[in-house]
Design a protein around this nucleic acid. Sequence first.
DNA 1: TTCGTATTGTTATAGTATAACGTAGCAAAA
DNA 2: TTTTGCTACGTTATACTATAACAATACGAA
Lengths: 159, 159
Amino acid sequence: MKKTSHTAFVDHEHDHQGCIAEAVHHAETLCRQRRQRFTAIRRRVLELVWRQHKPIGAYQVLELLQRDGRSAPPTVYRALDFLQQMGLVHRIASLNAYAGCAHPGTVHDGQFLICEACQSLAELDAPTITGAIAESAARSGFAPRRQTVEIMGLCPHCR
Amino acid sequence: MKKTSHTAFVDHEHDHQGCIAEAVHHAETLCRQRRQRFTAIRRRVLELVWRQHKPIGAYQVLELLQRDGRSAPPTVYRALDFLQQMGLVHRIASLNAYAGCAHPGTVHDGQFLICEACQSLAELDAPTITGAIAESAARSGFAPRRQTVEIMGLCPHCR
DNA sequence: TTCGTATTGTTATAGTATAACGTAGCAAAA
DNA sequence: TTTTGCTACGTTATACTATAACAATACGAA
């Protein structure tokens, strides 16, 4: 039996090295399947994005990347673009920041819960939300293709 | 009986001067009620935001504003911030742009349908979406306070 | 090994937003 | 009416986010 009923937000004392390793492993597998190169830079950027369960800015990634050697913005943005296309990373529009995808493998938009206090982020994939959106859109004669759903508030630990 | 069943998107041949006038009039009333100054700049920026039923960038507003005389970015951002606080204008995060609020008077986040073809925007205030979000959030132990819901797709005229 | 393509390096610049501080204008109190 | 205090605006500079353009390199298939 699990300690908590909150599945979207991670526990404060979880094995985070495991999170990163899992994300990287997943990425390797996915890129191999799709015949895409999972280069050293892409791997490193993915690791940095997974550094915390919080969105990270591109220039923050750059700063961390530069500890390994010289680097410039396009390098970061290219890696982030690639990872987004692979469905491994999400862009959080309301924060101009990036977060590791919790359910990689399929291309999807997801919905995000963002804590205003600790900035931690949880990803949902709630059919009820997508369904409500699809229904409302249809009522306006609108054909939805992509959704940005970002909810600011307080996470279970901060409320 | 109305010609169309699509209420969220406006007709291409509607009386748009009326739209602008109504928005400005509403703003006047609201500001008077709240003892806030509806200055010439704020009025002008509101008019410019309502120029089309499409989001407009802050620097586009600035460019238009400069036809009336010299102006700088802070002037535009201040006016936009004020109008947002009054609930007269929304910021569209995924576009870094601003749009006139279709239901001014109450502070609310709204949900937006954005056409990828013609950029036209419609604002919803769908309780089913808000409800689905609230429910999903609660299931994660999350207390929502603000939502960003922006749906890209094709409007009734472009699909 | 060679060739073609994908990736990265590098420099410059575009686009979005705010900090900081001074000036002006309005509104209520004296 | 004048004073006073606050709000709004002007102005300059700068921070932050993202991409264009082109050269150099590395990789994988033929």
